[in-house]
Design a binder for these strands. Structure first.
Length: 279
DNA sequence: CACGATACCTGTAAGC
DNA sequence: TGCTTACAGGTATCGT
């Protein structure tokens, strides 16, 4: 699930709960998620104070005064439940802080992961080392888009999903950004026109920032009404709207499958450039 | 190297 | 109602 905006929202929601707080108890209820949990996670975190919370791509980062950084990935179904009251199935790791707050990492499918590494090694961590520029960061621009699309045969959809090329985009926001830019998801990267790139350039940060704003607005006092952080409702133009009317024109939204994943698009707004063939 | 297919795991909704 | 199937917002790995 969680793509860049959801992870950003989760970390912003956790900030007032954890910032400056000391972990008093951290309990893992199972030995692994997608991968084994770090050895001695509870012991290593207990007594440490959170100095900073942040995000890189779809990874949440929690830096402590012991020089360690907790790296959180929510996978497809991961959520942070704040002050959950009663623990539920799939509350795999439970964090208690000195302010009496409780946060449960809940992940039914266990595609998520947690790791704890020295802060100076965090950016070199295998999970983070190969990740491309942040679309809301200083290295994002037309030069980046031009570079990642140029001379590629892979479809535009696959290029934007590739975390090594650009960070944080997932299935929803790629579909939405391509729709705004008028790019058919099967357009080979190298066939995307300059005109389309000019539209994509503002479309990507716009869909992300609008989603962050929508997530933030669901966080009344920084925690969603049901105590969970990780999912929020947003109205999408094409994602999940197969068979419905396009929000921009009168056409019907289509769904195709590309490398095993659904792509939603408007066949009227999003066209293949003349002369190009589907990737 | 670049790309697509598959596996990982559980829950939910739709179809029969 | 029950059983079966398809699908879900991600990514690592293994083919071709």
């Amino acid at each position: 699930m969680p793509e860049l905006p959801e992870v950003e929202t989760v970390m912003r929601g956790l900030t007032p709960v954890w910032q400056g707080q000391r972990f008093t108890r951290v309990v893992a209820n199972r030995p692994d998620l997608r991968r084994p949990l770090p050895e001695g996670l509870g012991q290593r975190l207990t007594g440490a104070t959170v100095v900073r919370l942040g995000r890189r791509a779809k990874y949440g980062l929690v830096e402590t005064d012991r020089g360690d950084t907790l790296i959180i990935h929510l996978g497809m179904s991961g959520r942070m439940r704040v002050d959950p009251g009663v623990l539920e199935k799939h509350d795999h790791v439970v964090f208690e802080t000195a302010n009496g707050r409780i946060v449960a990492f809940n992940d039914a499918r266990r595609f998520g992961s947690l790791d704890l590494v020295p802060t100076e090694a965090a950016t070199a961590h295998p999970l983070l080392a190969g990740i491309g520029p942040e679309p809301l960061g200083p290295d994002y621009g037309l030069a980046l888009l031009t570079r990642i699309f140029a001379e590629r045969l892979a479809p535009a959809k696959a290029i934007l999903l590739d975390q090594r090329l650009i960070a944080g985009l997932g299935n929803i926001y790629v579909c939405e950004a391509l729709h705004r830019a008028g790019i058919h998801p099967e357009t080979p990267g190298g066939a995307v026109t300059r005109r389309q790139l000019d539209r994509l350039l503002p479309a990507i940060p716009a869909v992300l920032e609008e989603a962050i704003a929508a997530g933030g607005s669901t966080l009344r006092d920084h925690v969603a009404p049901d105590g969970t952080l990780g999912y929020f409702q947003k109205d999408f133009a094409v994602y999940g709207r197969e068979g419905d009317t396009c929000t921009t024109c009168a056409a019907t939204v289509s769904r195709i499958v590309q490398s095993g994943r659904s792509s939603f698009f408007c066949p009227s707004c999003q066209t293949l450039p003349k002369g190009s063939r589907k990737a």
